[in-house]
Each structure stands twice: as structure tokens, then as C-alpha cells.
């Protein structure tokens, strides 16, 4: 139902052709940052979804084709990153959170 997907980046069992995947890793000082909050905002800045990064700092969204902003929240930090989602592809982003 509404269970968050496992945040490891395997796409096994998912029909990627139908999806516009935005995924990636949040790092701090170059190391993966688990427990960061990544918010997916649409082209108008409207909130669309939010996930928590996995133990390996990973996150993933099933978006729609187009422009998106990733807003990453960690204690004392908020970082915005622009991404373009494409149907049938998995777009990867790395977000570095300032120390």
C-alpha cells in the first residue's frame, strides 16, 4: 500500500519503462548520510513527496517527466538541487550537505 520502498537503488521488479525515477545519494563530507530528509518539489515549488535516506545515504522517487527540485534537510542544513526526470530512465543525483 503506502509503504516506503526499500531505499537501496536496485530497480529489480519495477517496470522502469513506465517510471520516471529520480534517485541518488546524500553525502556529508563526502560520506553517505543516512537519515536525511529529501523532499521532491515540482516545477512550481509545490511539495510532492519526501523520503528519508537509507543507511547508505540513498533515496528514490517515482516522479513524472519534467523539472523537479530536491530539497534536502539535515540538522542545521537545507540544500536545493535541480533535476530533470525522463520517462524510462533513472536519473541519479548526489547531494552534498555542508558540514
Amino acid at each position: 500500500m503506502c509503504g516506503a520502498p526499500a531505499q537501496e537503488l536496485s530497480l529489480e521488479g519495477i517496470d522502469v519503462g513506465k517510471e520516471s525515477v529520480v534517485q541518488g545519494t546524500v553525502t556529508k563530507g563526502g560520506s553517505p548520510l543516512p537519515g536525511a530528509y529529501v523532499r521532491l518539489l515540482d516545477a512550481t515549488g509545490e511539495f510532492t513527496a519526501e523520503v528519508v535516506t537509507s543507511a547508505t545515504g540513498n533515496f528514490r522517487f517515482f516522479a513524472a517527466p519534467g523539472e523537479w527540485t530536491l530539497r534536502t534537510l539535515a540538522p542545521g542544513a537545507s540544500v536545493d538541487t535541480s533535476v530533470t526526470a525522463v520517462q524510462g530512465e533513472a536519473v541519479n543525483a548526489t547531494v552534498e550537505v555542508p558540514s
Binding site: C2, F47, A49, E50, R60, F62, A64
Partner: peptide
């Protein structure tokens, strides 16, 4: 979300 409302997508964007 607006995209679910309009019918563009059928579930929140962190789900298949």
C-alpha cells in the same frame, strides 16, 4: 498532490 489530483500520476511520487 496537484499531480495526483489532476490525474497525471496515481500515487505519491515515492511509490511505484
Amino acid at each position: 498532490s496537484p499531480d495526483e489530483f489532476s490525474g497525471k500520476i496515481s500515487a505519491p511520487a515515492h511509490l511505484p
